[in-house]
Amino acid sequence: MIQLIAKRLAAAAVIVLALTAVMFFLQKISPVDPVHAMLGPSASPAAIVAEQKRLGLDRPFLAQYGSYLNGLLHGNLGMSYRTRRPVSTDLGSFLPATAELSVYALIFALILAVILALGSTLRWPGSSVFRLLLIAGASAPAFLLGIVGILIFYSKLGWLPATGRTSVLNPPTGPTGFLTIDGLLHGEPSVTFDAFRHLLMPALAVAAIPAVSIGRVLRSSLIGQMRADYVRTARAKGLTERQVVLGHVLRNSVNAALSMTGLQVGLMFSGVVVIEEIFGWPGIGQYMAQSIPAADFPAISGVTLLLGAGYVAVNTIVDILQAIADPRINA
């Protein structure tokens, strides 16, 4: 198991390295000249040359990549053309909001997927409703769910807030950046509750489609596994149907669903960007939305690298979880 984890981590590192190479190459061929962007159109030629020297842009290509990598290792993602601050500082203030939204969306997606899959597979009166949800759910895009949610739960019912992360004026800061957790750590459960109310709608909107996709895969695995011989053995032992499903069938069914989760996380990131716009969520999505029109390449590449690394990390975890779930993978 340790060997497998080491192997997966090494593979993940290689992928992230390849991603940095791609980002660096794109930066080099992009039409935006960083020096012009930094100094503005009225800079003197001498100042431009001096700035190029200062940034090391006169050095060979590989050496530049080397120092770029070295910078990355030290958390240096370059200066944003637009905000004139280090990209890492910008991300530091926008990332926690997005990370919190994404983590909750993923948790909601997994819980919903298991409920949908079990609810539609087990024999009970409501199973056809769950089957319908699995079919219809995939045809509701996240932005539509977000808007409909705002119309119903904010405008009509007034149950949930529609914008921002919190209505608390001075929310506690750190250590995790997750308001729901920091609230508890600072002994302010009201902050946690408020933050949770704020993220409920956007997280569910992001989670809906992944939940349906994962749920469908899990459902088909469950149905297949319920016919397996070992289920017959478990029943012959006199186990209850609940013991059979939760104790035997579920673990044998999660593998394909885990693969699907890994894929869906990539899609979820793009869902988050849209949803943040709709809910006025102060996260990376908004930062991106402002950076792209400004051709702020360091900001764009910083965000891309971060999301890419997050995607690789999630899929590495998926691989490891699959090996834990099925001992034959490791063998």
Partner: peptide
């Protein structure tokens, strides 16, 4: 049952 490979839960 007949096939002890498939009749035992492979992940338990």
């Amino acid at each position: 049952f007949q096939d002890p490979m498939t009749s035992l839960n492979p992940t338990m």
